[in-house]
Computed example of a mutant assay.
Amino acid sequence: MLELRRTAAEPTGLVDDPLMAGDVGGAAETVLGRVLDARLARAREVDAVFSRDVAGRVTAFVRRGGKRLRTAFAWCGWRASGGSGDLTAVLETGACLELLQACALIHDDVMDGSVLRRGAPAVHVDLARRHWAARMAGSPESFGASAAVLAGDLALAWADDLLTEIALGSPHGPALYREWQAMRTEMVAGQYRDLHAQATCASGLDEAVTIATLKSALYTVERPLALGASLAGADEHALEALRSAGRCAGLAFQLRDDLLGAFGDPARTGKPVGDDLRGRKLTYLLAVALRLADATGDEEAAAALAPGGAASGDAVERVRAALERTGARAVVESKITELAAMSLRHFGRTGAEPAVRREFAALVERASGTAPQRTADSG
């Protein structure tokens, strides 16, 4: 799935018929690599130290991980809306999405104090280690966090620059840019609502859904589908169907990520397990468990799940046990299956060709973990 087959005579990143080619993943990696190489070369022209420490880490971070789901969903939106021929613009839009994702993850790890991402030290941790190795003055942790913020800012700047270039070169540029503008604001809003929920010890189910939608569902699936569709000049009917499909699939993706955050294997997810539980982050999983504990009068579970609880290892195990005992894990599994099925029904309303519908179904399975492969895109 999504792996381009090209001959040596074909130009890099270009394919005349993506459905005949079979899979665009290889082309997406080629285009992304070309974008990163160009940005890193420009950074070297600006300053060697900045290029080595910041730009180099951003490009390495983007290269080493993620399942490129956002790129694949952008391609599906493009194809579902009649896109054909030159893939360059849609694959470069995918590169923008990967850079935006890098910004979000780098900043998120700083805010959450996460030490591992994509199977390697988080960017702020890696930069703090450089501080120690270089025997710099001051606090390694402060240096690492501050430099990582700049690294995330750089990833966002690169994404914005590239998206602007794409929009200027497309007859559908204004529509494309409107989707991009909305997505950036939604992502920041979701991140703030996440922080706000922690600070206020929120526990409501509606708030958990709002956070999951803004922070993840929209920019993981809904907006990538709409970005691809915009490049193809999609009409409002197609966009509405794609947005509905994307929101359902995006929520399923986030709910799977919540489960993996609580019960996953770090060797497979590439990030620590239990961080959200330790920080009592308001997830749909936690909100469901609190509601079930209250409905059944399970005071022990309610106490373990309550916002503002202790962050010890024993406390995390008690939370995990409460998620199982209340039945919240099973409820969320069922909700994921329901959302994935709804997503496919909405996508069918686009009138996309059968091959594109099959591709979308396979992507939803990967994102939601409803297929035998149970890992989600950890970034």
Rank of each mutant, 00 (worst) to 15 (best):
H107A: 10
L251C: 09
L40V: 04
D265P: 13
D53T: 13
E338M: 09
G113H: 08
V273P: 09
D126K: 05
T12Q: 12
D86G: 05
V209C: 11
L195S: 11
R34A: 13
A252D: 15
S84C: 03
C103V: 02
L127P: 06
P372L: 04
A74D: 03
G351W: 00
F143N: 08
E365I: 00
A197F: 05
G279N: 15
A145G: 09
L251P: 01
G26D: 09
R5N: 08
R247H: 13
T12S: 12
V15D: 14
V209H: 14
W132P: 00
E236K: 07
V221Q: 10
V331M: 09
L105V: 13
G274T: 13
G152D: 13
G308Q: 07
D86H: 02
A371Q: 09
L40R: 01
F253E: 13
S51P: 02
P372E: 08
A361F: 03
L205R: 13
V125T: 14
A361W: 03
E45Y: 00
I211F: 06
P354D: 09
R184C: 09
R268A: 15
L286H: 06
G169F: 01
L227C: 11
T30H: 01
F61S: 10
G66S: 03
D23I: 00
G83M: 06
D109F: 10
F50V: 00
L260R: 06
R129F: 11
L305I: 07
A202Y: 02
V364W: 05
C103E: 15
P372V: 02
S81R: 05
E29L: 13
A27Y: 01
R5M: 07
L225I: 03
R118F: 05
A41F: 03
F73R: 07
L286S: 12
D86F: 01
A234W: 01
E299M: 07
S51N: 07
L251G: 07
L36H: 03
G279I: 03
V364D: 12
M183W: 04
G379P: 00
T269P: 11
V15A: 15
S114Y: 02
F73I: 05
I211C: 07
G274I: 11
P272G: 09
L363Y: 08
A148Y: 04
Y284P: 00
L259N: 06
E45S: 10
A303V: 10
R57W: 02
G369L: 06
S378K: 01
I106Y: 10
M342A: 15
A159W: 03
G77N: 10
L344A: 14
E240A: 15
V62T: 15
A321C: 10
M183I: 03
D294F: 01
G94L: 07
P354Q: 03
A80E: 06
V188C: 13
D16K: 09
L344Q: 14
G233V: 08
L344W: 01
E10G: 01
G138V: 04
G228C: 09
L32T: 07
R223S: 05
R184V: 10
S216A: 11
A43M: 05
S216Q: 01
A167W: 00
V46C: 02
F360R: 02
G270Q: 04
V90E: 08
R320L: 12
V188I: 14
D126M: 08
A232G: 11
A234Q: 02
E92N: 00
A212W: 05
A137K: 04
G190H: 09
A9M: 04
A341R: 15
T210S: 12
